[in-house]
């Protein structure tokens, strides 16, 4: 598997709104904790160390 960087979400506006909604009403610390849990859940779902490595690289090289 390679990391998918082309558009892959059917309803990007809905998913983005759900992400924001999950953070609403939380303090900055709570938001950070939520994101940490989310990252771990998604990493497990992806499950492929190569894809995760490429995702980490993309995240790191993006200013």
């Amino acid at each position: 598997m390679t990391l998918i960087t082309a558009a892959n979400l059917g309803q990007p506006d809905d998913v983005y709104a759900a992400l924001l909604a999950a953070h609403r009403g939380l303090t900055a610390d709570q938001q950070a904790a939520l994101n940490a849990r989310l990252i771990l859940i998604l990493m497990n779902h992806i499950g492929d160390p190569q894809v995760l490595g490429a995702a980490l690289e993309l995240a790191k090289e993006t200013p």
Binding site: A32, A33, A36, R37, I39, L40, I41, N44
Partner: peptide, 13 residues
């Protein structure tokens, strides 16, 4: 942050 997230999730998933 991630240590606490792992511990929090471990009880559930």
């Amino acid at each position: 942050l991630f240590r606490d997230a792992v511990l929090a999730l471990a009880g559930k998933a």
